[in-house]
């Protein structure tokens, strides 16, 4: 059962407060909520809530490795998925030219897509960046394309593939707060303090993993 402190409305406000007022340009914030899977006695981090802000200049990050043909094909795939999701949420049958699909015809950026596919992911305690942060009870801060690409965590490599340059996972009371950016953002105590304040958790500042 979700505690009142972590109800979804409250979570959304906290995630929004975390990045809307920040000096740095974060593209998104996600709260991975921990729960125990009874049959396996394992802690699993699943989607709690997320706030998507977007990048400052989306044109800057376009199609890092793909050709024009691949880009078009990938966009078609993303738009198709978005159309189906729109249909699922609104209950209106998806079809090209439908007024409700206007937003789908706009390019689906890499960060938007990364945020969307994040909703399908979960992490067993100790696995992936969020799981590792939870397991070690210490924040993980990865800055730079090379470091993300060289990470042992699939999520970090996936983030790099979608143009992110910074990803941070900070453990909190019953989950992990993750932030991502297409900019290079270096470790700051400001963010840690903000998470500590908003998500009510004592972080050992000396134990941040680079």
């Amino acid at each position: 059962e979700t505690m009142p402190f972590f109800n979804q409305e409250s979570l959304q406000q906290r995630l929004q407060a975390l990045i809307d007022g920040a000096r740095e340009s974060w593209a998104y914030a996600i709260f991975w909520q921990s729960s125990v899977v009874d049959f396996a006695s394992q802690t699993v981090l699943g989607w709690g809530d997320g706030y998507y802000k977007g990048e400052e200049d989306k044109n800057k990050r376009r199609g890092s490795s793909s050709s024009a043909a691949n880009f078009v094909a990938e966009q078609e795939h993303r738009k198709k998925v978005l159309r189906e999701l729109n249909s699922l949420i609104s209950g209106v049958q998806a079809s090209a030219g439908n007024g409700t699909d206007d937003a789908v015809d706009e390019e689906v950026t890499d960060t938007e897509w990364f945020f969307l596919i994040s909703m399908t992911q979960s992490f067993v305690n100790g696995n992936g960046l969020p799981g590792l942060a939870m397991y070690s009870s210490s924040p993980i801060w990865v800055t730079g394309t090379e470091k993300l690409a060289a990470s042992q965590c699939e999520r970090a490599r996936q983030a790099q593939g979608f143009g992110l340059q910074t990803i941070v996972c900070i453990p909190s009371a019953n989950g992990v707060v993750e932030l991502g950016s297409t900019e290079l953002i270096f470790q700051s105590s400001d963010l840690m303090n903000k998470v500590k304040y908003l998500f009510n958790f004592n972080i050992d500042m000396g134990s941040v993993t680079g």
């Binding site: 979804q8 959304q12 909520q33 989607w47 709690g48 809530d49 997320g50 998507y52 977007g54 978005l82 999701l85 729109n86 699922l88 949420i89 206007d102 937003a103 015809d105 706009e106 938007e112 945020f115 969307l116 909703m119």
Partner: peptide
């Protein structure tokens, strides 16, 4: 239809916000 509630809420919010953004910039794309 059987999306967990947290994901459904997040997805709804994300899609609505995207729709607002696209609608607000559309007149300038002519």
């Amino acid at each position: 239809a059987d999306l967990p509630i947290a994901r459904r809420n997040s997805l709804t919010r994300f899609l609505e916000k995207r729709k607002d953004r696209v609608t607000s910039i559309a007149p300038y794309q002519i």
